[in-house]
Simulated assay, not measured.
Amino acid sequence: MTEIELIKLALEAREMAYTPYSRHKVGAALLTTDGKVFKGCNIENAGYTPTNCAERTAIFKAVSEGYKTFESIAVVGGMDKLKALPFCAPCGVCRQVLREFVAPDTFKVYLAEVDDVTDLNNLTEDKVRIKTMTLSELLPLGFGPENLEI
């Protein structure tokens, strides 16, 4: 799967976001090592603390269906009525949840700046700028499962 295809799936997931309070919609598309994609969107709650991010929604969906090895994730986000989206990176909690399941030095995180989200069917590479990072770059010196081994 190409980066742009994964970003398009993240944009589709963003459309499902439930954000009545912040109006900041985020979509994520998580690619497993065997090519399956799990999409997630952020889901807000009036109590704020129970709110769940798009990245964690995708991860939890995948893990709940038995998938625990991942290759990459695309993340897109921005305010509800924006025609163009800026780069949107995972929050610290999502970075930590990813750290539980991925090889931080090789897992790719694709952040996308998108010129026009009004017509996803005509999303082309010239309308998207992609920033590719590893999880290690986003979460340096991250705490992971190996830190709890005896």
Rank of each mutant, 00 (worst) to 15 (best):
T106P: 00
N147R: 07
T19Y: 05
A28E: 07
M79S: 10
V75F: 09
N42L: 01
M16F: 13
N147V: 01
P86E: 08
T49V: 14
H24K: 07
E146I: 05
G47F: 13
K68S: 11
H24R: 09
T118M: 04
N52F: 12
F101D: 06
P86H: 09
C41P: 05
L148C: 03
G77Q: 03
E12Y: 15
R129N: 13
F87Q: 07
G35T: 11
S136T: 07
F70R: 03
L85H: 10
S136V: 02
G40I: 01
K61T: 03
I4M: 04
F107K: 05
A17T: 02
R56E: 15
E71M: 05
A46L: 02
F38P: 05
G78L: 02
E113S: 04
R23W: 04
V117L: 06
V109A: 02
V128A: 06
E15G: 15
V128P: 13
I130E: 02
T124F: 12
M1W: 08
F87T: 08
A112K: 09
A89T: 09
P20W: 02
S22E: 04
D80E: 14
P90S: 13
V75L: 15
A84I: 06
I150C: 05
V37H: 06
E146C: 05
T132R: 08
L98V: 03
L138E: 01
T57R: 14
I4E: 01
S72H: 01
N121V: 12
I73E: 06
G35C: 10
R99A: 10
T132W: 00
E149K: 11
V102H: 09
T2P: 02
A10P: 14
T51E: 14
E100G: 10
K25W: 03
T134V: 00
S64T: 10
A10N: 13
T2D: 15
E71H: 09
L9Q: 15
P86R: 09
G144F: 00
L31G: 00
K108Y: 04
S72G: 00
A13D: 11
A103F: 05
G142H: 05
A28H: 04
A46P: 00
T32W: 10
G66E: 07
A58S: 12
A112D: 09
K8S: 14
E15N: 13
I59W: 06
K81W: 07
T33K: 12
